[in-house]
């Protein structure tokens, strides 16, 4: 009976609200990392003219994109479950960006799936546009939304737009790294060039963003930006990006992939650091103030965390089944 009372009146562990902030940011990181390379594949797809090369890119994308995309739902619903005020206000305050983003996801997802349904030049071309356009707009709008969220900045402002561009470039970088690890040498060396350029553009973008924030003190984040942890993240990003580019040039694509995936993960960590202890600057609420009551949070912890571990296992299984380079007609048969 005492245990039951504990469950109702107090958090399972005292730091549970902070743990949930971390869990929500973890889901965000998973989304930005995994769907990020999907977006990258979509944008790099625009550089391919050869039907066979296009098919190769779509084969890499096919079995995993849908599962990757679900992380944005996991992120959103975990935010709702733990911090309903933040979920409501962030989405309501960025109405057109949020719905523009989901529509971009719609076109991105339908593109490859519908393209396969009919062997007709123009039909395929339109769905190619849908795939490419969606893959570009989704990270741009999501990143811009995140920039507004973190820095309390208008849509057409440097902090918001640079966050959007940062997400676009990092997606191209990870997409290129993912594809080079999975395709034949000629295509791989072609994509590698785009990947390296995108990596450099991303690093410049992040540094420009943080400089802007320090100069304008957007969202009052200047002080945090100048702190040691943020500095460490910048240094690590430069190391991962620069080192990754060297690895790419040497043709060590698997190692490049690992360091490239580190970039969006570090970006998500940066987001968490910039926000904490606040969670949505315009409301002025801290993590502790915005969190739900103990019983509700304990419940989603007890039921949700084992489920999250299971999900991670599914992903290990999925990527295990579809590991290794794509040969000939791809994974099919």
């Amino acid at each position: 009976m005492t245990e039951l009372v504990l469950l109702v009146d107090a958090y399972l562990v005292d730091a549970l609200p902070e743990i949930w902030f971390g869990a929500v940011m973890f889901a965000l990181a998973m989304y930005v990392v995994l769907d990020g390379f999907d977006f990258g594949i979509g944008m790099l797809y625009a550089t391919r003219d050869d039907e066979h090369e296009k098919e190769t890119l779509l084969t890499a994308f096919g079995p995993v994109w849908d599962a990757n995309e679900v992380w944005v739902v996991a992120f959103g619903t975990m935010l709702l479950a733990a911090f309903p005020r933040v979920y409501s206000r962030v989405l309501a305050d960025h109405y057109l960006l949020a719905l523009g983003f989901v529509l971009a996801l719609l076109f991105r997802g339908l593109g490859p799936e519908m393209r396969e349904q009919r062997d007709d030049e123009r039909w395929k071309r339109y769905w190619d546009y849908s795939f490419i356009g969606g893959s570009f707009l989704a990270p741009l709008l999501f990143g811009t939304l995140a920039g507004r969220w973190i820095f309390d900045a208008p849509t057409l402002s440097l902090p918001a737009l640079l966050t959007g561009v940062g997400l676009v470039t990092v997606s191209v970088a990870t997409g290129a790294a993912f594809l080079t690890a999975k395709t034949r040498p000629r295509l791989a060396s072609d994509l590698r060039t785009y990947g390296i350029i995108a990596t450099l553009a991303y690093l410049i973008g992040v540094i420009a963003l943080l400089t802007t924030v320090v100069v304008t003190d957007a969202g009052g984040a200047a002080e945090t930006v100048l702190s040691l942890p943020v500095g460490a993240i910048v240094v690590l990003s430069v190391v991962a990006g620069g080192g990754g580019s060297v690895l790419a040039l040497r043709g060590e694509y698997r190692a490049w992939l690992v360091s490239a995936l580190g970039l969006p993960a570090l970006l998500s960590l940066l987001v968490a650091l910039l926000l904490y202890p606040n969670i949505y600057p315009p409301t002025g609420l801290t993590v502790r103030e915005a969190v739900v009551s103990p019983l509700a949070l304990n419940l989603v912890t007890i039921l949700g965390f084992p489920a999250l571990l299971l999900v991670l296992w599914y992903f290990k299984f999925l990527y295990g089944v579809f590991s290794g380079p794509i040969e000939g007609e791809g994974y099919k048969n």
């Binding site: 739902v73 479950a81 989603v300 949700g304 999250l308």
Partner: peptide, 9 residues
């Protein structure tokens, strides 16, 4: 929030 998050996960 809980049920919707469980649906996703």
């Amino acid at each position: 929030g809980g049920p919707l998050a469980f649906e996703a996960k």
